[in-house]
């Protein structure tokens, strides 16, 4: 168990569960999370900070979906920028060229990305390991070329301008604070969706596929169907993120949705820690901020970037979240372990 489940278990082990009613236990981290979003939204007034935080939220959404595919189902996708882009371009085309409301754009983004994921996933998910990586990589490149070359629809290499902002009734999400809240509200919903899937029959099936595909099949799990469903789910997360991105920046260009973006998305999941919801958040935050911090190194930026990735992978191969949790537990010493064991015994 990792992420939220692990957190609540830890509460129980250190004797907190007496104070927290059981129905509140699992939802406590959500409340804390929602509280943190509200606090940041109220306190931070600097436009630049809010903008960066909004980008982190958008990336978190992508990482959450990709984490379901990579961390739980154990499948890699090197083409997720394509779904991010499909979300962004679908809503851009529907709102600007056809004059639909952005909410129709959202429906379009979700349905087109879902459909494309289904068609692409059907043959590619029969592949595994490197082959699946190559298959999705090829798909990502094709979509990227489409964005660049289908000039009449996408505006080509020079980009797509004039995407309208989002609005509900008379209210328009103009202010950075409003958009920040919208994006992070969506992230919160995304976290809850992921958590609920992971804690369900489907989540168990996903983890079983990751642990031993042969045994999963022997337990009657249609592994191919399951992988396809998670692939579509992760594409939907990416497309919603793309939708939010397009209406936030109001200008999109193919460069945002290239192969490097796909790699960065995979890196977010790996760095944060696979199979961990909070890991997705941490990874997204780090990979969004890192390029900004690294500007000080000017032309050595990529070198430092690569070094950081290498150091993390060598020292904390299970990702930052797991690594930090382990360090924290180690620093608390042996007594925690002993206490944990005695709790385990009293369970029976």
């Amino acid at each position: 168990m990792s992420g939220l489940g692990g957190l609540s278990v830890r509460f129980r082990q250190s004797g907190f569960s007496v104070k927290i009613p059981s129905f509140l236990g699992p939802s406590l981290p959500y409340l804390l999370f929602a509280g943190a979003i509200a606090l940041v939204g109220l306190w931070v007034e600097n436009f630049y900070y809010l903008q960066v935080l909004t980008f982190i939220g958008i990336n978190t959404l992508v990482a959450l979906g990709l984490n379901m595919l990579m961390g739980y189902a154990g499948q890699i996708s090197l083409g997720h920028a394509a779904f991010f882009g499909i979300g962004a371009y679908s809503t851009a085309i529907l709102t600007v060229h056809y004059g639909f409301s952005p909410w129709i754009g959202l429906a379009g983004a979700i349905s087109i990305a879902g459909l494309v994921a289904l068609v692409v996933g059907l043959p590619t998910l029969k592949l595994s390991g490197y082959y699946l990586g190559m298959g999705t990589l090829g798909f990502g490149m094709i979509v990227h070329i489409l964005f660049r070359e289908w000039t009449s629809m996408t505006g080509g290499a020079s980009g797509f301008v004039g995407i309208p902002p989002l609005s509900v009734g008379n209210y328009t999400f103009y202010s950075p604070t409003a958009y920040f809240s919208l994006v992070w509200g969506t992230v919160l919903i995304g976290v809850i969706i992921c958590r609920r899937i992971i804690d369900s029959r489907i989540g168990r099936a996903l983890r079983s596929v990751h642990d031993s595909e042969a045994a999963a099949r022997a337990m009657g799990i249609d592994t191919h169907m399951l992988k396809l469903q998670v692939f579509v789910l992760s594409a939907l997360f990416a497309s919603v993120a793309g939708f939010l991105y397009a209406h936030f920046v109001t200008f999109i260009s193919p460069g945002t949705f290239d192969f490097l973006t796909s790699v960065r998305m995979v890196t977010m999941v790996v760095i944060g820690g696979m199979a961990s919801i909070w890991g997705a958040l941490l990874g997204a935050a780090l990979l969004t901020l890192l390029p900004d911090w690294l500007h000080t190194f000017s032309e050595f930026e990529m070198v430092v970037y690569g070094l950081i990735l290498m150091v993390v992978m060598i020292l904390l191969p299970q990702g930052l979240t797991r690594g930090i949790l382990d360090l924290w537990e180690k620093s608390k010493g042996e007594d925690i372990d002993i206490k944990g064991e005695s709790d385990g015994d009293s369970f029976r």
């Binding site: 168990r204 983890r207 079983s208 990751h210 642990d211 031993s212 042969a214 045994a215 999963a216 022997a218």
Partner: peptide, 12 residues
């Protein structure tokens, strides 16, 4: 079926 070499879901 079960397996000759135990195939448990080790992360669970």
């Amino acid at each position: 079926r079960t397996f000759q070499n135990v195939e448990l879901f080790s992360s669970m």
